[in-house]
Design a protein around this nucleic acid. Sequence first.
RNA 1: GGCUGAAUGGCAGAGUGGCUAUGCACCGGAUUGCAAAUCCGUUUACCUCGGUUCGACUCCGGGUUCAGCCUCCA
Length: 462
Amino acid sequence: MLHLYNSLTRKKESFTPREAGKVGMYVCGITVYDFCHIGHARMFIVFDVLFRHLQALGLDVTYVRNITDVDDKIIARAAQNNEPVDTLTQRYIDAMWEDEAALSVLRPTHEPRATAAIDDMIKLIEKLIDGGFAYAADNGDVFYSVAKFADYGQLSGRKLEDMRAGERVAVDQNKEDPMDFVLWKSVKPGEPSWSSPWGEGRPGWHIECSAMAKSLLGEQFDIHGGGMDLQFPHHENEKAQSEAAHGKTFARYWMHNGFVRVDEEKMSKSLDNFFTVRDVLEEYNGEEIRFFIVNSHYRSPLNYSTAQLDSSRAALQRLYTALRGTLNVPEKGVDQSAIDRFDEAMNDDLNTPEAFAVLFDLASDINKQSSPTTDEAIVLANTLRALGARLGLLQSDPDVALQAAPVKDGAMSAEQIDALIAERLAAREAKDWQRSDEIRDQLTDEGIVLEDANGKTTWRRG
RNA sequence: GGCUGAAUGGCAGAGUGGCUAUGCACCGGAUUGCAAAUCCGUUUACCUCGGUUCGACUCCGGGUUCAGCCUCCA
């Protein structure tokens, strides 16, 4: 039985889909005006792990993750670059897909773009106005009236009075209440805009998600996810809009992933302390980055550091080392008790650290076998590969994985390495230990680690 | 100021009212020409002060520190 922490109730709850066997899941994606950083990667990977786990439980998952492709920052960046908005957004969407592929993130079922759903947004805003939950101001902006929605503040655990008391933003004179938020913004010169009953303009951010979720998942669905920082105001507003418009509970479970930090501080664009996925891929491969992220619980803060990535690399090497030399014979079956233990951990609100312990125990058991080709080793290795797949890891050929590293200029090629190993082998046969060690030292300097076993020498990148 | 959440061994990171997490690092042994990998073994812990309890790192309360949100943000 799957249990998930529901941000709405602030406790773990048993998960039952609203329709047996099917799950509708919506996750707030990114605003495409720059490259993805490790914080974005965490969101991609966390919900990818959930997507995979729900599927492993036999559920038919419709996973929607939107792309915000109209927004103040996008407009500003396009103007700065002197390029059309859609050229800019497409470039960063392509980059996002590249990054995701490197991190073994599965593509969601749907990746709707805000600009393709403007009509749905307008309809939703009209419905809110008709229902008395929104109003058009004289300047063409349309606002949501928070005072009209009794449950406002439920998701973020805030009271309207408290929020008003702590008001820190300059109040827009067009608003009836300082807490009201914009649904439709009237056009400003030079900005992209669409026609609407309130004149030319563009949608506010929150209404985008409400509209896209409704059109792809319906008025009510199972899981809504996103980063911790979206809980307020974005998700609170989204919930208020959708529930006011449709008169029913919007998402049944709300899930929020924790942040990636740098020096104990949130990684973000505005603090300028972010590392892009592609920068980190220069030094670490996608699987190492993915391991680093999955290695901690999705709700915990995760501190970014190269020491941690180095540790992830070492841990991954241990798992791949155990798989090295094992035969891939799926017919021999799997170790069900390990799978059960893994499922139990994952069913407990995606306890990936505990799930990892199962993988390491399997690796240990494989290593204890007299040979990697015994029936028992094959079963254990099958299990390790299968559970690795559940986390989006360990799907490479072990030798390839152990020898792969981001290629740097001037790095020694596999051919050069093999040639030196052959020369060393000859030296060793002649018991010329000095020459043998010289070659090994030379390779060590190149970051190549040699392992002599059973008369053969294998190498890996350290 | 308001609201959340967190504090575990050298580092990372789970978990449990009494019993080994796991990974990395360290130390001893086996193995190896020497290493590496692997195996065996050892060492290091639960922020603080009270309370509940036969017994608390684990439950309750106070405190301290840290982070997040309250403004665009995964």
